[in-house]
Nucleic acid binder design. Structure first.
Lengths: 168, 168
DNA sequence: CTAAACTTTCAAAATAAATTGAAAGTTATT
DNA sequence: AATAACTTTCAATTTATTTTGAAAGTTTAG
């Protein structure tokens, strides 16, 4: 397989994959392109390579910067901005976990806390089932939160150690 | 907060949440409704409660069954089918992890394995960067796969034990 | 076997999300 | 201060996803 073929395959597959993670195709593709680029790229180059519009490129680059997955770089003698991706995949994974935890787990916990306050008596079947579900959900989500919060503080080697200890 | 208010809030929030996990709003809402229902519900009741069409209800119930989150139940004397959700949230979480692992992690590993075969020389910067990225990705995804595969074999209490050992 | 009860399918319609591109906004250079 | 280089915004458009609902299919009861 030729380099260009492999590159296109990776970018396109990463784009498809992104969709199932709630990340837009373009954002995933910009990320993929920067991940495999040895040098930082300008918005112009990204647009041309991926055949996407200026607006799209700009928006997705900004989002990737917000996610902490891409950095702005200053190239001496060049006026325009260049961008490069975080290449340490473990850091990338941690960043993604961190962002999703903040965006998804925190709101669930807030919601569940709120919903526990529902009025009702213990003898009402529906009320009981509701409280049970909310309580059990909270317990599981709390544990996931705990695990993820700790995981993003580990380095990759420590994680490996932990995994082996855990599932020996 | 009244029961009905809390119920609606939960169903609506679960629907919204589902979206960010690549699950359609209706599917998440059907799941939420069944999760808090003490009794199993017919397709008819689900349609009416959530104000969704027959086809939509049917499709999403089937999908939830495929995911192993909902079961068909036979009610004596009734001809139509009734449905109920798995109420053990740890089992629910494990099912979701299991399905997503199969649908998302397996294809990535296949892709990365394939992409390692790219032609090229070690002196080519682009080729080297590509191989590095693919290799590092594979290493991280492999570890995630290992951790998830093991996690879905644990029961909830064992998981708690493991978490404490891990992050003492 | 036939009709009624119920379930599934799927093309069309509705909705939601992503993308474009040109105009407006900024910043640096002379 | 004027202009060129570059970045951002956003309304309009395109594309993708979800939902509908009526028709077709299936199963059970009589």
């Amino acid at each position: 397989m030729k380099y260009n073929e492999a590159k296109d395959k990776f970018i396109q597959a990463w784009g498809t994959l992104g969709s199932s993670w709630g990340i837009s195709r373009s954002m995933a593709q910009v990320h993929a392109l920067l991940l495999i680029s040895p040098d930082s790229l300008s918005a112009e180059e990204i647009m041309e390579d991926l055949k996407i519009s200026r607006g799209n490129a700009n928006m997705n680059i900004r989002d990737l910067i917000d996610w902490g997955l891409v950095f702005k770089e200053q190239v001496p003698g060049e006026r325009k901005e260049f961008f490069s991706a975080e290449k340490d995949i473990w850091k990338v994974a941690k960043q993604i976990i961190k962002e999703r935890r903040k965006r998804e787990i925190e709101p669930i916990l807030t919601l569940l806390e709120e919903l526990k306050k529902v009025d009702g008596t213990k003898t009402d079947k529906k009320h009981k089932a509701f409280i049970d579900t909310i309580t059990n959900l909270e317990s599981v989500v709390d544990k996931a939160d705990f695990a993820l919060t700790r995981a993003i503080k580990l380095d990759e080697n420590a994680l490996v150690g932990v995994l082996f200890k855990l599932f020996k």
